[in-house]
């Protein structure tokens, strides 16, 4: 598979004011190139949740998007730490380590990672104290 479109976005820690900006750009761009609306909605959910994770839980990070020549779309969220202690726990619906500030804004439902996995066709998560990388793949139909 060759990447035909590549985009990179940087997301800063605690930047609540711009939360969702990268996801909105990605969604708009994919809409312009004619990605199926159903797939687009799944990507929007996964992208937003992952972007929020970079803001709430990580010391910021990057989003890399690739559209491959077979039409599949890959999103990679790579942060700078502090890593997830227990991935299995973090994947449990309702489990959250979000701060009071984040919770007061309606985040921290403990549905982020479960939502991301549910809407993705392929989901991979790797974490160490140096950082967490989530790799998602979307195909035209699920």
């Amino acid at each position: 598979m060759n990447s035909v479109i590549h985009e990179k976005y940087t997301v800063a820690q605690d930047d609540f004011a711009n939360a969702g900006k990268a996801s909105s750009h990605i969604k708009e761009h994919l809409k312009e190139i004619g990605v199926d609306p159903q797939v687009l909605r799944r990507i929007a959910v996964a992208c937003y949740e992952s972007e929020i994770n970079l803001i709430i839980h990580a010391y910021g990070g990057d989003i890399n998007m690739d559209v491959f020549d077979d039409g599949s779309i890959q999103l990679v969220f790579k942060d700078k730490g502090p890593g997830i202690d227990d991935i299995e726990k973090a994947m449990t619906p309702g489990f959250s380590t979000a701060s009071e500030k984040a919770r007061s804004m309606g985040f921290g439902a403990g549905m982020g990672l479960p939502n991301i996995k549910r809407v993705s066709d392929e989901f991979d998560i790797q974490s160490s104290p140096e950082g967490t990388t989530i790799t998602l793949l979307f195909r035209e139909s699920k």
């Binding site: 609540f16 004011a17 939360a19 969702g20 900006k21 996801s23 909105s24 909605r41 959910v45 937003y48 949740e49 929020i52 804004m105 309606g106 985040f107 439902a109 403990g110 549905m111 982020g112 939502n115 549910r118 809407v119």
Partner: peptide, 26 residues
């Protein structure tokens, strides 16, 4: 709860909430 809303809301729905901060727009 924004993640709940993101995960379960559907296009063209009226969204009723008491959250009034910037993230509801996204």
């Amino acid at each position: 709860l924004l993640s709940w809303v993101m995960g379960n809301g559907l296009p063209n729905q009226v969204w009723i909430t008491v959250q009034g901060h910037m993230n509801i727009i996204a």
